[in-house]
Amino acid sequence: MKRNDLLSLFEKVSYRMQNLENETGVSEVCPISIIDMGTWEWAQGVGLYGMQKYYAETKNQNVLDFLTGWFESNIQKGLPEKNINTVCPLLTLTYVYEYTQDKRYLDICKEWAEWVLHDMPRTEEMGLQHIVSGVENDGQIWIDTLFMTVLFMARMGKLLGRQDYVAESIRQFLLHVKYLTNKKTGLFNHGFDFNGRHSFGEIQWARGNSWYTSGVVDYLDLLGEEHQGVKGFLVDTLLAQIKALEHYQHENGMWHTLIIDRESYVEASATAGFAYGILKAVRMGYIPDKYRECGMKGLNAILERISEDGTVTEVSYGTAISDSLEDYRVVPICPMTYGQALTLLLLTEALKLEDLYGN
């Protein structure tokens, strides 16, 4: 596949995401839609981040116009209540601020970063409680938080030279790894409840795991050279996860929605996130080159699941935490913004595979 073919594919996937609606009629359980691209939630935040990555790679003005238009529309409507998930779009807004130098965007980011640092509900040991739209999740930490909020805090720390923001991001990564790592597999449990001191059945959910794989490789870009110890720890954790992912990868290149449950369905958004993180980790020299094949299998599996109109197929709907495996097995499949977006991240990484995808 040539570079121009990848660019064309990105345009199709991106256009589909920008115009995504609930065509399948799936019953949305989230108070704010995570399907409609026009709303402000975590799913749309991931979508915006994928488009920002593409803009950084290509400087396609149409992409920046969409991003600025999206933020202007939502700012005019009024931003939602602050929580873990509604922070997610701000990660992209920090970049849009840099591109446009519109101080309004930076002011919003500053306000929300201060709220995260000082006012966001906390668990024991100062973990960011996974409060979401409509649900407090008292005492709970989820692996999702690292992508949805902690990346933003690290990015703000770098942007503003705020070492307290960077320090907070480090604490959250270390705390989440401490409580969510499954010692038997090297994968991550979905969450931990400090109130009941339990891990919700130690369920190793694929997309949750992919938030670490795809997020940590970008997080490492944000940490300065003075944090080599933390970087080494996070890379070692990533390598342990990828060793397990290689073992559990389906022969078709995908991963099951319950990674170690080969009877659960294979799922595309997690596969895209895994492939992105693995291929970038190899390119950056974080993990041995032998894992490249694992990432390439994932990439090729996703390429096969992009339909003619740009829809990424076999994506599961938003998934609340549970101690029941069956609750994860029955989550419906439908087109989702984050399925499109994680595919966009993967495609931007594929653009860097010069030896395989030439001009």
Rank of each mutant, 00 (worst) to 15 (best):
T86Y: 08
L146R: 06
R104C: 04
W115E: 05
C88I: 02
D65W: 01
M156A: 01
V87E: 03
E136A: 10
Q101S: 04
E124S: 14
W142K: 07
Y99M: 05
T100E: 04
E136N: 11
M153S: 02
P80D: 12
D138P: 01
Y105I: 10
G157W: 03
E136G: 06
F152E: 11
V96A: 00
R104S: 09
A113L: 06
F71A: 07
G157M: 11
C109V: 08
T123G: 07
M126V: 12
E98C: 01
N85Q: 12
L67H: 02
G78E: 09
I108H: 02
R155G: 08
M148N: 05
G134T: 11
E114G: 10
Y97K: 02
L117S: 04
K110Q: 12
E98G: 01
A154N: 10
I108R: 05
V63T: 08
L117K: 13
L160S: 08
E72N: 12
E124F: 13
L90F: 10
V96M: 02
A56C: 02
M153H: 04
C88G: 01
I141C: 15
L67M: 01
I75P: 05
W112E: 08
S133V: 11
E114Q: 14
A113C: 13
M126C: 15
Q61S: 08
T68D: 11
L146W: 07
M148Y: 12
T145E: 09
P80M: 11
V63S: 02
G69C: 06
E124T: 14
Y54T: 07
L93Q: 05
C88W: 05
E125A: 15
A56E: 15
Y55P: 06
M120G: 06
W70A: 05
A113P: 08
V63H: 00
T94K: 03
N83D: 12
L67Q: 03
A154D: 04
G134A: 10
F71R: 00
L79Q: 06
G127E: 13
Y99V: 00
T68L: 02
L64H: 09
L79G: 05
E136F: 14
R104Y: 04
M120I: 12
A113N: 10
G157L: 09
E114P: 02
T58G: 05
L160Q: 14
W115D: 07
W112G: 00
V87N: 03
Q61C: 00
T94F: 03
T86S: 12
P89M: 07
L90Q: 09
A56T: 07
M156W: 03
E98N: 04
G134F: 02
N85F: 09
H118Q: 13
Q76A: 15
T68F: 00
T68Y: 07
L117Y: 13
M153N: 06
F71C: 03
L160G: 10
D144K: 12
E136Y: 14
E98H: 00
L151V: 13
N62G: 09
G157S: 13
N62W: 05
D119P: 01
L90N: 10
I84C: 15
Y105C: 06
A113W: 01
C109E: 04
L93G: 02
P89R: 06
E111L: 00
A154E: 13
D144R: 13
Y95W: 00
K82Y: 12
N83E: 07
